[in-house]
Structure formats: C-alpha cells, structure tokens
Amino acid sequence: MRSVTVTSIRPRSRADATPAARAAGGKIYTPYKYWFYLPAAVLYGVLFVVPTFASFYYSLTRWTLFDSKFIGLDNFRLFFSEPQLVKGFTNTLIYAFVTSGSKVVLGLLLAVLLTSRIVGRAYLRSVVFFPVLASTIGVAIMFTVLMNPERGLINGALGLIGIDGPGWLTDPRYALMSVALVDVWKGVGLATLIYIAGIVSIPREYMEAARVDGAGAWETFRRIVLPLSRPATVTVIILSLIGGLRSFELIWVMTRGGPGFTSDVIASVIYKQYQAGFYGLSTAGNVVLFLVVTAIVLPLSWFLNRKEVDM
C-alpha cells in the first residue's frame, strides 16, 4: 500500500507580505474597484466642473459665439451698478425666504394632520402631493388665468362676497408675492411628504408614554413631534431654499419680471441680459447666482446639521 505524505501548508506571515499588503492590513491592494468610479467622475467633470470653471472665465470677458475679450471685473461692476439688476438680487432673497419659510410651516402642519386619524387620510395625502407632479409651466399658465384681475376666477369669487380683488400679477405691490404663493401651493406637497416620513419614523412608544403622562395634543407636538422631526425640517429648509433662489419658470411665465422690474429675480434678469445679447453680463449673473446659493446654503446646512448632532 502506497503511503501518502501530507505536506502542511503554512500560511504566509505578515512579514512575508508585500509592503502594499501590509499597509492594507494583510489584504492585497488592487485599484480595480476604483475603476467603477471613473464613468461617474467623467460625467461629473464634463457636465459640472468644466462648465463651472468656463463660466467663471467667461464672466470676466465680453464674448460672443465667435470671439471673446478679457475685461476683468467690469461685468460684475455693471451688474451691481444697474438698479434693475440689484432689484432682481433683492427680490431673489425675499422670494426664497418667503417660499421656504411657508413650505416649512405649512408642510409640518399638513403632515401632522395627515398622520392623525382622520377620514380619507390616504386620499388627502395624494391630493396634497398632486401639484408637485404637475408641470411648472402648466401651473403658471393656469394661475395666470385664475389671477386675471378682470376675468379671473379668484377675483370673480371675491366679488361675490363684496371684495374688490387686486391685480395679482399687474400690481407692483402684489406681483412677486402672488408668484410666491403659487410656488408654495405647488411645492408644499413635497415638504409635507418629507415631514410625513419623519413623523411616522418616530417610535410609537414615545407617543404612548406622553398619552399615559396626560400630555395633550399641543404638548405632544411641542415636546415630541417637533424635536424628533428636526432632520425632516433641515431637509425641507435646504431643498426649499435652493429652489427659491434658483426660481425662474413660474416668474417668467406669470409676470416676465413685471410690471416693470418689480418681480424680477436673478434668473429672469440673467435671461433678459442673454436675450439682449449681453452674454458676458449674463454669465456674470450666473456666477453671482452660483455664489449666492453656495454662500447661503452651505453654511446653513452645516449649522443645522451641527445643531442636530449636538442635540
């Protein structure tokens, strides 16, 4: 009978490993897994990084489709010296803070209502969210008709109860806020959905404990729902603020920045300058808008998330 010799295989010690393997804790290093990042990195670079740096350069030039001339910061000086451009910058800040604040408050109240035990709760949730799915241009056209000062349904309904409706989109005092009201109507459904997700994730034990302790609806909301839905609040604030600062479609379709320049925002000012052939000036406006969004959103996001962690 033939004897079989079994040779024991000694595993490689850490000392026998290559320097790269020792640096990786004994595992063999390979760059293969990082190759999967390459397609996304290329797309990000082509669609965002390159256009961003190109915009910064062309904002310092007077350019056409076939030629460009470097003029330094003249475009930015002109941008902030024109009254209508400064008005658009101011309107952008007002519009963004009004719409984002309204979405936070209304979204939270609607979410509390739609997570309570009411009849037709699922149907009401779909009704509240439906405007989010509607086309922005379609919503703008619909409300332009509804807000017509002479033949609009809104003023017609107000006239039935003896109220003389204003020129929602033709009166300089109301134009910007009228568009902001439409923006809130269209976007509050998304804020409500985010708040609903935050509220239903709160452990039921907290609610039961509050009920046992005799806490009423207001105390439960103030002590439990409001603090524990803070992540949802942060998300709604950031998303709404970015959307408000970048708003263009509603304002352009409903008022085109009018009457005069009273409802212009940065985006509509940029578009008007581009239509007039001032490409360098419109590019400078894009850079200003980018810097404004970054300067407001990034510190605010850091502050809100830091406060959330501290809690």
Rank of each mutant, 00 (worst) to 15 (best):
L93R: 13
T115G: 09
N75A: 09
V112A: 12
A96C: 04
Q84L: 08
V128P: 04
A96L: 03
V112W: 08
L93F: 15
R117T: 15
R121V: 00
S126N: 13
L113T: 07
L65K: 09
G88Q: 02
L85I: 10
F76Q: 06
F79V: 00
F130L: 14
K103F: 05
D74F: 07
R125E: 02
S126T: 14
V86R: 13
G107R: 02
L65Y: 15
R77K: 14
G88T: 05
A111E: 05
Y123N: 12
L85P: 03
S68Q: 14
F66H: 15
F80E: 04
D74C: 03
F70H: 10
I94D: 07
L65W: 13
R117V: 12
G88I: 01
V119F: 13
F130V: 00
V119H: 14
S81Q: 13
S100Q: 06
V112G: 03
F66K: 15
A111Q: 03
F130H: 09
S81E: 13
T92F: 05
G88H: 06
S102F: 13
N91E: 07
F66I: 14
F97S: 11
F70N: 05
A96W: 07
G101Q: 05
L106E: 02
V128M: 00
Q84A: 11
L78F: 13
P83K: 12
G101A: 03
S100W: 00
R121L: 00
L85Y: 15
L108P: 04
P83G: 11
F79S: 09
I94M: 08
G107I: 00
S81R: 15
F76G: 07
F97W: 13
E82R: 14
N91F: 12
R117Y: 08
V98H: 08
L108S: 08
G72F: 02
F130S: 09
N91K: 08
T115W: 04
E82G: 12
V128L: 01
L113G: 14
R125K: 09
T99Q: 11
Y95L: 04
T99F: 02
G88A: 08
K87N: 14
I118G: 03
R125W: 09
K103Y: 10
D67S: 15
A122Y: 12
L124W: 13
V104I: 13
S102N: 07
I94P: 07
G120V: 00
T92H: 10
R125N: 08
G72H: 02
R77Y: 11
L114V: 03
F129P: 05
R125P: 04
F129C: 06
S81A: 14
I71H: 09
L110G: 01
T115P: 06
F80L: 01
D67W: 07
L113I: 01
S102R: 05
L113N: 06
F80W: 06
K87H: 14
I71R: 06
P83R: 09
L106F: 09
L65N: 11
S81Y: 08
L110V: 03
A122R: 11
V105E: 04
L85A: 10
V128C: 01
L110H: 03
P83Q: 08
R121T: 05
A111C: 05
L124I: 00
G107N: 00
L106T: 04
V105G: 03
I94R: 11
